[in-house]
């Protein structure tokens, strides 16, 4: 019998490095997550902190210069009726967009999770992702043309003799308007269209994790399909719904282009921030406005947690 060593020789620096990482797994971990953590800490949290700091400054009304002294005056300005309207309008729109996305995304996500296989699954992913590959601006302008008074929707409504429905919709108070492209309804449609992939994907992932046997068990125990949906499928899909709604909600809260192109010319938070830090030069108020979505999201997450949305995680 040949004698073979019990320990194999080191073959080079690669082996030595690998030995080192094997003996000190924490070193490898530190090397891997150090750079991104540094980036996150300095660039991301740092700028967020700078923003928060700015929001506690105020602007001198005569000189137009920022006074670097701690004050709550800027926040008080937020609740002035004209500013508070902007906040309310944006939060309501974000809520409506989220609700719309949930309702439309659910059947699509359910189909993809439970029934689509092979080729159809690939077609689903492509179909959901494809709109994300084209320019956001092009899509929004395309929608403006679709929704305009002389646009496709009006034309189609005339052709199918359903102008009455369209006009009834547009004559609704507040959300109606002269045409779809100049009403809140139009803004809502475009928001839902643009953000819906962000709702479908996490929802589909959550539904895919619900085992078929659980749905069978529910029906085996006597539940109708409606009861199974309410008591088993929806509660188990809730983490995915919440994840998706975090996207749709916060993206709507921060967007400033869609409401500018499609909708009534009333301001949303994003537009307010854009004008305040640009032409108006009121950085503190812009910062205070920018803090609002963060605060709203924190409240939203706290409510979701209390409702048990993360229990199944």
């Amino acid at each position: 019998m040949t004698t073979r060593p019990a320990t194999l020789p080191v073959r080079g620096p690669g082996d030595r490095l690998s030995d080192l990482f094997w003996r000190r797994p924490r070193l490898l971990l530190a090397l891997l997550i150090g750079p991104p953590l540094l980036w996150l800490g300095v660039v991301y949290l740092g700028s967020l902190f700078a923003l928060l700091l700015q929001s506690f400054y105020s602007i001198d009304e005569f000189s137009g210069l920022v006074v670097p002294e701690f004050t709550l005056k800027t926040y008080a300005e937020l609740i002035r009726p004209s500013n508070f309207d902007i906040i309310l309008r944006t939060v309501m729109m974000a809520a409506a967009v989220t609700a719309g996305c949930i309702v439309i995304a659910f059947p699509i996500a359910y189909y993809a999770a439970r029934y689509a296989r092979g080729r159809w699954k690939a077609a689903f992913y492509l179909g959901v992702m494809l709109p994300l590959w084209s320019s956001y601006l092009v899509k929004v302008y395309a929608w403006k043309l679709i929704l305009a008074k002389e646009g496709i929707v009006t034309w189609a409504a005339e052709g199918t003799h359903t102008s009455g429905i369209l006009n009834a919709l547009l004559s609704l108070p507040v959300i109606g308007g002269n045409s779809l492209s100049t009403s809140y309804i139009g803004t809502w449609i475009v928001f839902v269209y643009v953000w819906i992939p962000y709702m479908i994907l996490p929802m589909q992932a959550a539904l895919e994790r619900v085992p078929t046997s659980m749905i069978e068990a529910s029906s085996d125990l006597g539940a109708s399909s409606g009861q199974t949906l309410r008591t088993v499928i929806l509660p188990l899909a809730l983490p995915g719904v919440v994840a998706g709604s975090i996207f749709t909600f916060s993206l709507t809260l921060g967007d400033y282009i869609i409401p500018q192109i499609v909708g009534s010319s009333r301001l949303f938070i994003g537009q307010a921030v854009y004008t305040l830090q640009g032409t108006a030069g009121n950085i503190p108020l812009a910062a205070a406005f920018a803090v609002v979505p963060i605060a709203v999201m924190l409240v939203y997450l706290a409510i979701a947690k209390r409702m048990g949305a993360f229990d199944a995680l």
Partner: peptide, 29 residues
């Protein structure tokens, strides 16, 4: 359909509802 059969099943993976308590699971039917 299964919900109208007076037949019940113990599943191989048990298929207990993870978001309900044991009591609610048992009382589900």
């Amino acid at each position: 359909p299964p919900n109208r059969r007076n037949v019940n099943t113990v599943f191989q993976d048990y298929a207990l509802f993870p978001h309900m308590t044991v009591r609610d699971n048992v009382a589900y039917g």
